[in-house]
């Protein structure tokens, strides 16, 4: 589904990603862990098409197409979804109007007619229930006045509505209390299927107790320095990141 080869990227002329290689297949859940500043969120931004990031080398194929060549909206329409670390508030844009527009545009791209108002309402109720998101959305502006937890749950609700094939969760667990974390994870687990895939970016192992990954990768200094199964996450939890940093440094020195 997603093939990343030797991806290099910079922001404000500073090299952030220094050769990422990663393959994600349908049905898989990948966790990307790493210390602060290792490039985790940058990877998410590059994949979603944030303009301030310049790709300097490498390629990314998504369903066989060149992802890097697409506008952010086309990436979304192709089935890529980024759950933002900091979902933005947009006063004056209502949640409902926003979702309707997004859904209609994605459907149009796929040659589908927009949903009737009734169908939309039904779908939105179903999905709200599925992800246990009970915030009143009508007459409220996008994320405006939402608590940190509500914003994150709204991201998962949007994920449920838009049904992407690949979802990237950028530190969705940060700032969540244990109940919210459980609700968000359960939502994600319900949405998991053999046809879709997830990339879960997180600093802590905590989230991975709820969403069990198939693979765990450790990102450090712009590169994936270690990959493994969920046991790697436990090891990291126990030993922290320092030993990896040490290992990476030794490796760099030996070269």
């Amino acid at each position: 589904m997603l093939i990343i080869k030797n991806l290099h990227a910079e922001v404000e002329e500073k090299q952030i990603l220094k050769g990422i290689n990663l393959e994600v297949k349908a049905g898989e859940v990948h966790a990307i862990m790493g210390p602060n500043g290792s490039g985790k969120s940058s990877l998410a931004s590059v994949l979603a098409g944030r303009e301030s990031y310049q790709v300097t080398q490498g390629e990314v194929k998504f369903h066989g197409k060149d992802l890097l060549d697409m506008s952010p909206e086309d990436r979304a329409r192709e089935g890529l979804f980024l759950a933002f670390q900091y979902p933005i508030e947009i006063p004056g844009v209502s949640n409902v109007n926003f979702l309707k527009t997004a859904l209609a545009e994605i459907r149009q791209y796929r040659g589908l007619p927009p949903l009737e108002a009734k169908e939309f309402l039904k779908l939105s109720r179903e999905k709200q229930k599925l992800v246990e998101f009970d915030a009143q959305l009508v007459n409220r502006s996008l994320n405006e006045g939402f608590s940190g937890g509500e914003k994150k749950r709204n991201e998962i609700f949007q994920l449920a509505m838009l049904e992407p094939s690949l979802a990237i969760l950028d530190e969705t667990d940060s700032g969540l209390d244990i109940d919210a974390l459980r609700i968000v994870s359960q939502g994600v687990n319900k949405l998991r299927s053999k046809d879709n895939a997830f990339i879960i970016i997180t600093h802590y192992q905590r989230l991975l107790e709820y969403i069990v990954p198939d693979f765990v990768h450790v990102l450090y200094n712009g590169r994936i320095v270690k990959s493994g199964t969920k046991d790697l996450a436990l090891e990291l939890e126990e030993k922290g990141y320092d030993w990896l940093k040490e290992e990476a440094r030794e490796k760099a020195e030996s070269i």
């Binding site: 947009i90 997004a102 545009e105």
Partner: peptide
Amino acid sequence: FYLRARGIGE
């Protein structure tokens, strides 16, 4: 960017 990342055209 947020809106575009949800599939809404520019």
